[in-house]
Design a protein around this nucleic acid. Structure first.
Lengths: 205, 205
DNA sequence: AAGTTGAGCGTACAATTGTACGCTAATTTA
DNA sequence: TAAATTAGCGTACAATTGTACGCTCAACTT
């Protein structure tokens, strides 16, 4: 890659990072202005357009990147789970750690999921869908579930996890343990419930 | 109430209604400007301050009002359930109807739940908490659950319902039926799972 | 070596925003 | 009836916003 393209990539990263860094509990992506991001990245407002068509395009890039990051980290966690122990417990703990080290990555997904732009909502939904279908295939194979049931179960699990994540972002570390425990309990509920419903269906047939 | 106070109340309502009417899938409360709301309500921008300290105060009023509306409508639905039939099915159907006739009431709760203002998030959480504790008490009495378990179960149920509501807002009527069916399935999962966990605990004791 | 490209800049402008201030006129109070 | 209150208005202003336009000069191509 030429010197020129390299520099361009560097600036582009500076923009993305600037935007991520400006996110917080009090600041959502949609409340960021193009000028603020450019300022933080150290470039002139009008130079922004050399990299993104508009703020929307930057945001979608961030959602994609964020989803990827999240999935990579969860995959690492799953490897840890293969060593033995409760899959649910380990996954929850991993998730909470990811959350703690990448709060802003999670924030943009969380916020834009119920945001004001259809494109954003769709993008976030796509990322979440990754999690759901990965999980659905897993349980379909592992626990021998009906596709419909596996899908419903996976979706429920993911929703509960995401929701707990949102609460965790808003709470102190001390409250997080209780939150994680309750989440584990809820996930077990769904898992055992799905199991029971599956048996009921099998016996009926 | 004097003529003056009456007129004032009328204008206040006009403001609240104007704000509600401007909400849509593409327009969140936080994206509304004071001037837009005033314009829609037919008053001068500066007159807004005769009724609310700022947009925040208007928003919190709307959250409170919205929560109240939602709870009232769900209560009506519960009466319908007492006549017999599946509590879950009837509740879900009621919820979907409420959603269809008051989309914007639901929208503000949904969006501000993961919003940018701590006060808003707290207010929404308070409204959701109403639902959860009502439900928890219900199952604690009805199904003889441990408080901890009843709480976790109720929370899971409410979260799943709210989440499905969010999806429903984004989907056509034809997809809603499938959505409602899947929601019912998920709620049954949680209910049966909680039941099973309860038994397991009882036997251990 | 000469010519082309394009990342980044500065200037400029029209919109829109929140809100301070003081006035009017109708209602309420005394 | 006279005085006090106040909902609503118009004017005004400083900030901030997105973006059009044209320039520069270093990097690349031929």
């Amino acid at each position: 890659m030429g010197v020129r393209a390299q520099q361009k990539e560097k600036t582009r990263r500076a923009l993305v990072d600037a935007a991520f860094n400006q996110l917080s509990a009090e600041r959502s992506f949609s409340s960021l202005s193009l000028r603020e991001v450019a300022r933080e990245a150290g470039i002139a407002p009008t130079s922004f357009y050399r990299h993104f068509k508009d703020m929307n395009e930057l945001g979608l890039t961030m959602v994609d990147e964020g989803g990827l990051t999240l999935r990579q980290m969860m995959r690492k966690g799953r490897q840890r789970a293969e060593a033995g122990g409760s899959v649910i417990r380990i996954s929850v703990d991993t998730f909470m750690e990811v959350l703690e080290s990448n709060p802003n990555v999670f924030r943009i997904l969380l916020h834009e999921r119920s945001g004001t732009s259809a494109a954003f909502r769709a993008a976030v939904e796509r990322e979440i869908e990754h999690f759901i279908s990965e999980l659905a295939h897993y349980t379909e194979a592992q626990a021998n579930r009906t596709p419909v049931l596996a899908r419903a179960q996976a979706e429920a699990l993911v929703i509960l996890v995401f929701n707990a994540g949102a609460s965790a972002l808003d709470s102190k570390r001390s409250e997080r343990r209780a939150l994680a425990d309750q989440l584990v309990l809820q996930l077990r509920m769904v898992a055992t419930g799905a199991e029971a419903l599956q048996h009921k269906m099998d016996n009926r047939a």
